[in-house]
Write a protein that binds this DNA or RNA. Structure first.
Lengths: 218, 218
DNA sequence: CCAAATCTTAACCATTTCTTAACTGAAACG
DNA sequence: CGTTTCAGTTAAGAAATGGTTAAGATTTGG
């Protein structure tokens, strides 16, 4: 499921686009100002960005310059050829003038998502780095091969660093990967994980919180 | 120097565009009919195609369907949204309605050449080189003949070297070539591929990642 | 329309991973 | 201090996955 960031301060237009995208089964994240946009790009790393040029805070042109590897489609009421050409040359991949036709927007979104593979973003915490390949954990440069369940578990812990995850929550979160996993099975997986990590690190990374669940050691 | 193919039967428009592109230091090749276009695409393998839809011989829509990995910008007087959307979905990367502004055309050409540069990778890896003929893989000078499904599989693996591709993803990617392929069938194809490659190489190139998918051996 | 090439199906076995369950140790609590 | 409950470790067996092969179905090319 592809993730699209809508950067648009006009609430009604924003909602309109959002509804359209959700109907087409895209995951949508929102930003209503330039500064919020930069934050959301880093936090969510969307697959594609729809950008209105006139924004409070940082303006659209600045955002285009700061983003490198996510396709940006500019949606703008500015129809001057100078704007259009400049933004395309600066890094936008398309420029659609408002008002636009929904079908055309959707078609152009598909064009730019086509063939694009999701960016390789890595999760990390201290010496640990989880690669985006579903099976590798780095412990300070050393590659450890994980099973898909172990990968799912450490991924959730890394996504929630500094927080305790209850065992039920964790089981729920990994249920897509590993269906029939109960608490007993979970503690075996955690044990395996700690054993694998301890081969390359003196820290015991996964800590249990008595009666509640697990978290990464501080 | 990038090579652009202009497919346009109207001589005056054709010349206009050609002049514009040459001024911008592009190398230009010409086609004035659909059939000539197909011939020129094979002979010249241009980096980008500018395509007028209404052509003698094969029409533009057919050309779009036949071309896979060269970006096509449609230039058309047809302004109906249906045409626009259909052609974009069928494989065109952009659609500019005539009459158009020269600067916009140049900007959009740059956008799509830029995209292609990022995407375009050599289809080779260590001793392996995949020829562009849909059926030949070189293993250090030795030609191996592949079936179209085997070709599609190794192509996707080469396009995603250093990454694990899940079996579902792989099935999705080759579905255009081979429709009714399931996981069982896939593992047979992979087995055949490894067998063929192993005749000329001691490395086992296609590695399975247990429970996840496949990747090329590091 | 036939022969050859290719693809899918299914069975077999080897391997990896997961779960189960028993045992041991530690924390909470009266 | 002893009991209870939870956590960690371990090993064994169950289950799932991958590789190989061959047979039959389907497609392709002459």
């Amino acid at each position: 499921m592809k993730k699209i960031l809508i950067i648009e301060d006009d609430q009604s237009i924003h909602d309109l686009i959002k509804e359209l995208l959700i109907e087409e089964n895209y995951q949508v994240v929102d930003a209503f100002s330039g500064t919020e946009a930069i934050y959301m790009i880093q936090k969510e790393s969307p697959d594609l960005i729809l950008l209105d040029l006139m924004l409070p805070g940082l303006n659209g042109e600045e955002i285009i310059k700061q983003v490198n590897d996510i396709p940006i489609i500019v949606l703008s009421a500015k129809i001057s050829m100078k704007d259009k050409v400049e933004n395309l040359l600066n890094g936008a991949v398309d420029y659609i003038t408002k008002p636009f036709c929904n079908e055309e927007l959707l078609a152009r979104i598909k064009v730019h998502l086509r063939n694009r593979k999701k960016k390789n973003q890595e999760l990390s915490y201290k010496e640990l780095t989880l690669l985006n390949d579903n099976c590798t954990l780095l412990v300070s440069e050393n590659k450890i091969k994980l099973t898909k369940t172990e990968y799912a578990i450490i991924k959730q812990l890394l996504l929630n660093k500094n927080q305790v995850i209850s065992k039920n929550e964790l089981l729920e979160l990994i249920s897509e990967t590993t269906e029939d996993c109960d608490e007993n099975s979970l503690k075996v997986h955690i044990s395996h994980l700690n054993k694998k990590i301890s081969e390359y690190s003196s820290l015991k990374y996964i800590e249990s919180v008595w009666g509640i669940g697990y978290k990464l050691k501080e």
